[in-house]
Amino acid sequence: MAAEAEHAQGHFPVDPLHQFVVHKIVPLQIGGIDASFTNSSLWMVVVALVVTAFTVLSMGKRAVVPGRFQAAAEMFYEFIFNMVRDNAGHEALRFFPFVFTLFMFIFFSNIIGLFPYAFTVTSHIIVTFTLAITVFLGVTLTGIYLHGFKFFGLFVPSGVPVVLLPLVVAIEVISYISRPISHSVRLFANMLAGHITLEVFAGFVLTFGAMGTVGWLGAILPMAMIVALTALEVLVAALQAYVFAILTCMYLRDAMHPGH
């Protein structure tokens, strides 16, 4: 830690990227592949525990007139349930538990990541990409399972002139394949940028603070900025979880009804 501080003093009081560093807590190797339990894994477990505690313990009483936590859990349930039903259709409701888990995992990762000293699981591209590719493969396989070869009709929009068809199909295929990339990068970039911005402003506060009395006054501005940004980040955390879930629902609708 002392070495870290020494290193940081060189150019900037805080290294805005340090919060994203993954370090091993329990080194582990499975068949030559690194499977170490890292701080990232730890916070994944924390997120899963919080989600489970929230959704299970809040329903402990199963009251007809719900308490605060039960009302919140029911609100999440109905919110995601309606989202899946309205965007993906009734047939897609069998994927409701998956979309719910996805939303809750991302939402709580984003929110918990905002706490100081916490690690934001979703600020790593590999995590969001794994989630996105799971959705992509799941949706594609579901589509092929339900509709067989007809699923590929998704790439052939109706009413397009035959001359333009090869071009349009190529564009459709490329846009379909790039879905997991846009899907994952959107969440990752939002989380990453938000946390870097917060850390940079925190660095300004420390820089000003080191200047003495005048600096203390100067630190008020970036401090106010941090407060405002934190509020914005709460919004972004919820919004990105929502966007991820609703895009999943829209991809699911394509798998259920490819004839658009």
Binding site: V22, K24, L28, I30, I33, D34, A35, S36, F37, T38, S40, S41, M44, V121, H124, I126, V127, T130, L131
Partner: peptide, 9 residues
């Protein structure tokens, strides 16, 4: 860090 993150995720 990718492999451990994927596995734990």
């Amino acid at each position: 860090t990718f492999s451990s993150q994927i596995i734990w995720l």
